[in-house]
Design a protein around this nucleic acid. Structure first.
Lengths: 156, 156
DNA sequence: CATTTTGACTATCTCTGACTATTATTATAA
DNA sequence: TTATAATAATAGTCAGAGATAGTCAAAATG
């Protein structure tokens, strides 16, 4: 059974592409369309459309309220990478890391193979020997260092 | 009477052939089908679908979670990689790791950018939070998993 | 003894709902 | 008319329930 969150995520990303970088929705309406509670929309947004992941979200309550999601403009891959690197904190979960990496592919900053390598390097599987409480720190360090390495070399 | 683990192994391998190299299952569902505890699935996977045997395993918990198993490539580059992967022991120093990676580039198995990423992911700098005596183990795990990801058969 | 099977406990991710906060609109009072 | 209060229409938060998978060591098996 596919996750509802993934479906909603895809739906929104589709809209964003259609609308060339921005989308505006009403929370209740969207929740209604997908037969879920409104707060699930917040969940999707907070796990998939955060600022660090390259999205800018605004909203307004009250009558005629809305949520708008904008995809950040990326004209320089290097700038974008630096932005991401500084915004990644000292710790990151495997899932969040994967979402980041997928975004890099979406933004054409890395190739699919490169994404696979990065995911392989930051998976929990590989960090079993790291004490649990340090795992997310090490992962963040790995991810950031890999990204740093990309700011040095141009993509063919 | 054949062991349950063997039966499950055969079942999964059959699926992998049918699906041309990759299969995605739900642990509980599979355990249910074979009337065993879920953790037996982990046992089967960890004893029969290891990297050395040519499989790449990923998983995700939570609602809609899954376990995916991918068969690895057996072409010459894949062979070479598998050979390397098995020859890398459980531990590897940063220096040795770099030598390996440089060789991959020389043998045209990976791109320059990919090499940069791999070196970044296996540098000592990134493993400062790992206890010294575990550092080379973690590095070996990272390197092997990255190499393995390259041997995965892609579909799509 | 080595391997397999089991189950209790843990970790992670998703979904839900009650409660809260904010904004817009309408009604009421001055 | 203008200021204020009440009401309606949204969205936000957070903790807990639900749905998975992972780990590890003891028990069973052969």
């Amino acid at each position: 059974m596919a996750r509802l969150s993934d479906i909603i995520e895809e739906f929104l990303k589709g809209l964003i592409i259609e609308e060339e970088g921005t989308v505006e929705i009403q929370r209740n309406e969207l929740a209604n369309r997908f037969n879920c509670v409104p707060s699930q929309i917040n969940y999707v947004i907070s796990t998939r459309f955060t600022a660090e992941k390259g999205y800018y979200v605004e909203s307004r309550r009250g009558g005629g309220g809305y949520i708008s999601i904008k995809r950040l403009n990326v004209d320089s891959a290097g700038d974008y990478l630096m932005h991401i690197i500084t915004s990644i904190g000292d710790r990151i979960s495997q899932l969040t890391s994967e979402v980041f990496i997928n975004n890099f592919v979406d933004y054409n900053i890395i190739e699919n193979r490169e994404a696979m390598i990065m995911k392989a390097a930051t998976s929990d599987k590989v960090l079993t020997d790291v004490p649990t409480d340090k795992r997310d720190d090490v992962r963040a360090a790995i991810l950031k260092n890999m990204l740093m390495s990309l700011t040095v070399i141009k993509r063919r």
